[in-house]
Amino acid sequence: MDRHSTLILSILLNALTTTFFSPVYAGTFDREFDITWGGGRGKVLNNGELLTLSLDRASGSGFQSKKEYLFGKIDMQIKLVPGNSAGTVTTYYLKSKGDTWDEIDFEFLGNLTGDPYVMHTNVYTQGKGDREQQFHLWFDPTADFHTYSVLWNHHHIVFLVDGIPIRQFKNLEHRRIPYPIMQPMRLYSSLWNADQWATRGGLVKTDWSKAPFTASYRNFRADACVSYTGKPSCPAGSPRWLSHRFDLTAENNMRVVQRKFMVYNYCTDSKRFPQGFPKECGIH
Rank of each mutant, 00 (worst) to 15 (best):
G39H: 13
A224Y: 08
G27I: 09
H155Y: 14
V123W: 03
W208V: 00
I11Y: 05
D115Q: 15
L187D: 07
P82S: 10
F135A: 01
F169R: 00
W101I: 04
W138F: 11
R200N: 14
E132G: 15
C281I: 03
D247Y: 06
L16M: 15
L45Q: 11
S59F: 09
L112C: 10
I181L: 09
K170E: 12
N46P: 00
W197F: 08
D269W: 07
P232W: 02
R255E: 14
S65N: 08
T100V: 06
L13W: 09
L187W: 10
F213P: 01
R41T: 05
W37H: 13
A250F: 02
D223H: 09
W37Y: 13
V44P: 00
M119S: 12
G110L: 00
I177P: 01
M185S: 01
I177H: 02
R272P: 05
I283R: 00
L172K: 02
G282E: 12
V161N: 01
K67S: 13
E132W: 12
L112H: 08
M262N: 01
I8T: 04
Y69A: 01
G110Y: 00
T100K: 13
G114M: 07
S85R: 11
V24W: 10
G87N: 02
H120G: 10
A26F: 07
E280A: 05
G98D: 04
G62I: 08
G98M: 01
L109F: 13
D99C: 00
E132S: 13
V150N: 01
M182F: 11
E68P: 00
M76V: 14
A143D: 14
N46Y: 08
G98Q: 03
L80T: 04
D102A: 02
K73Q: 12
P184N: 00
H136G: 05
I35R: 07
G72E: 09
Y266R: 06
G98Y: 01
V158C: 07
M254Y: 09
S270H: 15
L51E: 02
Y266F: 15
Q133R: 15
E251A: 14
G38F: 03
D140K: 02
T36I: 12
L248V: 11
V44G: 04
G48M: 06
V226I: 03
C234W: 07
D195G: 10
A215R: 09
G282R: 14
G48R: 09
Q196S: 15
I11C: 07
I8A: 03
Y188Q: 05
S22F: 11
G282T: 14
N253F: 10
Y148W: 07
A211K: 04
L80N: 07
M1K: 11
F33Y: 04
S5Y: 04
D102E: 02
K260Q: 15
P278Y: 03
K205Y: 10
S59M: 14
I104A: 10
A15H: 12
F63T: 06
G202W: 12
Q183V: 02
V81C: 03
V81Y: 02
G60M: 02
A58H: 11
G60A: 01
D130K: 14
G83Q: 13
I104H: 10
V123H: 01
S216W: 13
C267A: 12
L51G: 00
G163M: 02
C267D: 12
F273V: 08
L172P: 02
A26E: 14
N253I: 06
